[in-house]
Computed example of a mutant assay.
Amino acid sequence: MTAHPASSDPSRRVALITGAAQGIGEAIAQRLIADGDIAVLLDIAPTVEDTAARIGAADAVRVDIRDIPALQAAVHDVATRFGRLDVLVNCAGTCGRESFEELSPATWQRDIDTNLTAMAFACQAAVFPHMKEQGSGRLVNIASVSGKVGGIGPVDSAGGGGRSGAAYASAKAGAINLTRWIARQVGVWGITANAVAPGPIASPMAAGAEYGVSRTPIPRMGEPSEVAGAVAYLVGPDSSYTTGTCLHVDGGYVLA
């Protein structure tokens, strides 16, 4: 297998970001590139190649992350072609907004598979063998304050009102605890695992939803770049003794 040309610079870290075709994932990729990292974007969207070209990413990979064998093959391929894998950011996600009464098994399975199951097996593929053999690595899982408060957004008498749905909230709560579980195992190999829990962020996923941000301590929607800043800290040198944490980027939403 031919190595990617960017892999010839050992001073630059290789970062793989899932869900990076737009929104928060794209902002994370842009920030890591600005910080000097080699970024590879992974997304199911056909626009991921255009995004990679526009922001200066090293490569783009189209994969449905719910196809676990294909996802893990993609992670291994990136690590092999670039000669290493230093950072994995799991940002891909889906968010159903049905009320609990209207929740379907299909929506439940989609949101669990996308937001939690794929995250687990992407981390597995990154750690074994690549990060473990390197003796270093940073895993960052994008969770949500939905996983802390049981969905964000207003609640009407029917339990809907555009609030992030039960499957999404359940998956994001699982993502936070999955991150803690992984952190307890991988630290001995020089790997950290942390989560970031965004609150109401002005991204495509949030389009059309009402979050009631006027009641939060910082009364506005957050920006994808603000989530990217938190990720940059967690993959940077200043967080070398930080693992198993969940960093809220929510304007104080969980306090309101």
Results as ranks from 00 to 15, higher is better:
Val196Lys: 10
Arg180Ala: 10
Pro204Asp: 09
Met221Ser: 07
Ser144Asn: 10
Ser164Ala: 14
Met131Ile: 07
Glu133Arg: 14
Met205Pro: 03
Asp113Met: 15
Gln185Thr: 15
Val149Ser: 07
Gln124Glu: 12
Glu102Pro: 00
Pro219Val: 09
Met119Phe: 09
Met221Asn: 07
Arg163Cys: 14
Asn141Tyr: 01
Ala158Tyr: 06
Glu98Ala: 11
Ser104Leu: 04
Met131Glu: 07
Arg215Gly: 15
Ala166Asn: 10
Asp113Tyr: 14
Val89Trp: 03
Thr114Leu: 11
Thr192Cys: 08
Leu116Tyr: 08
Ile191Lys: 01
Met119Asn: 09
Ala167Gln: 11
Leu116Trp: 09
Gly137Ala: 04
Val140Ser: 00
Val127Glu: 01
Pro200Phe: 04
Arg138Val: 01
Ala206Asn: 03
Ser99Ile: 00
Glu133Ser: 14
Ala171Pro: 04
Gly208Tyr: 06
Thr216Asp: 13
Ser99Ala: 04
Ala166Lys: 04
Pro154Arg: 14
Arg163Val: 15
Gln185Ser: 15
Arg215Thr: 14
Asp111Ser: 09
Gly187Lys: 12
Gly190Met: 03
Val89Cys: 09
Val227Ser: 08
Thr216Gly: 08
Ile152Ser: 06
Thr216Tyr: 13
Glu101Thr: 10
Ala171Ser: 10
Ala228Asn: 01
Pro105Lys: 00
Ala166Val: 14
Ala125Val: 00
Ala143Ser: 15
Met221Val: 05
